[in-house]
């Protein structure tokens, strides 16, 4: 390629990380960044911290929409597979769908995951309390971060516990001789729980990252974003798990 040039100087300064604007705070119960934005008249506030938060949430939401489809696809196998069978030599239809007895520990795991969603929500809201956030923004200390941290830590522990619980469930199944490749139902069981566990592993990484972020990042709004996006991801994983769990328990 010959040298190409843009007609304008490429903009390198970052004008939009919002030093000027205040970080979003929780005036409504939803937590910051609710829906009062009028897109038409944004020129003055364009690039403010609230817009930044919204932008990050949009990206996370898009990713989660894709993730939802991904899990829906895996689940579709669950609905198609039980009807698949074959005709044996005697012209009998043979179905090879053998229901799996769900390891009881999954109930405990589900409870743990629900609890972890609760703790991360508490942590998330700490970062949007108006008084604390203002104090942080003015540089008078970090009350919000200090209050969020224990809840975040609790979430990390609960998340780890959930993963350990899933591991135990797999161990129990393989002790019964049920492996990934054993039968259609075990394919499905390992596939969805495995895919979900992988997402939670990523979530745990994100949580650890968010923990580091709220202590190390200088800008209040970036701290909020780090925790907020992780929290929404975590909630989505809890929600997906509940769907998957209901499927595994009720629709074998």
């Amino acid at each position: 390629m010959p040298a190409t040039f843009t007609r304008h100087q490429v903009e390198t300064e970052k004008r939009d990380t919002g030093y000027g604007g205040k970080p979003p705070v929780d005036r409504r119960p939803t937590g910051g960044g609710g829906g009062d934005d009028n897109w038409d008249s944004r020129s003055s506030r364009h690039g403010g911290p609230r817009e930044l938060l919204i932008r990050y949430r949009l990206a996370v939401l898009s990713g989660l929409a894709g993730d939802f489809v991904f899990f829906a696809v895996l689940v579709s196998a669950f609905f198609v597979r039980p009807t698949a069978g074959h005709i044996d030599a005697g012209a009998n239809f043979v179905s090879d769908w053998h229901p799996i007895a769900i390891p009881p520990i999954l109930w405990i795991n589900t409870a743990i995951l629900l609890l972890s969603s609760l703790t991360i929500e508490v942590a998330r809201r700490q970062l949007f309390h108006e008084i604390d956030v203002m104090e942080e923004w003015l540089g008078l200390g970090r009350p919000a971060v200090k209050r969020a941290a224990p809840w975040l830590l609790a979430t990390i522990l609960l998340g780890g516990l959930f993963l350990a619980g899933q591991w135990i469930a797999w161990q129990q199944l393989s002790a019964q001789g049920l492996y990934f490749a054993t039968n259609p139902n075990s394919h499905f069981f390992y596939l969805v729980t495995g895919a979900h566990a992988f997402h939670l592993l990523l979530g745990l990484l994100a949580l650890v990252f968010a923990m580091a972020a709220i202590f190390r990042l200088k800008k209040v709004e970036m701290r909020q974003i780090a925790l907020d996006c992780t929290a929404w991801f975590w909630h989505a994983m809890t929600l997906f798990w509940i769907f998957l769990f209901i499927l595994l328990v009720c629709y074998q």
């Binding site: 929409a65 894709g66 991904f70 829906a72 696809v73 990934f180 895919a195």
Partner: peptide, 16 residues
């Protein structure tokens, strides 16, 4: 976002 996520899921199953 929708279509390629679906393909990813299908590819994962094919890989398995």
């Amino acid at each position: 976002v929708i279509a390629f996520s679906a393909l990813f899921g299908a590819a994962l199953m094919l890989f398995a």
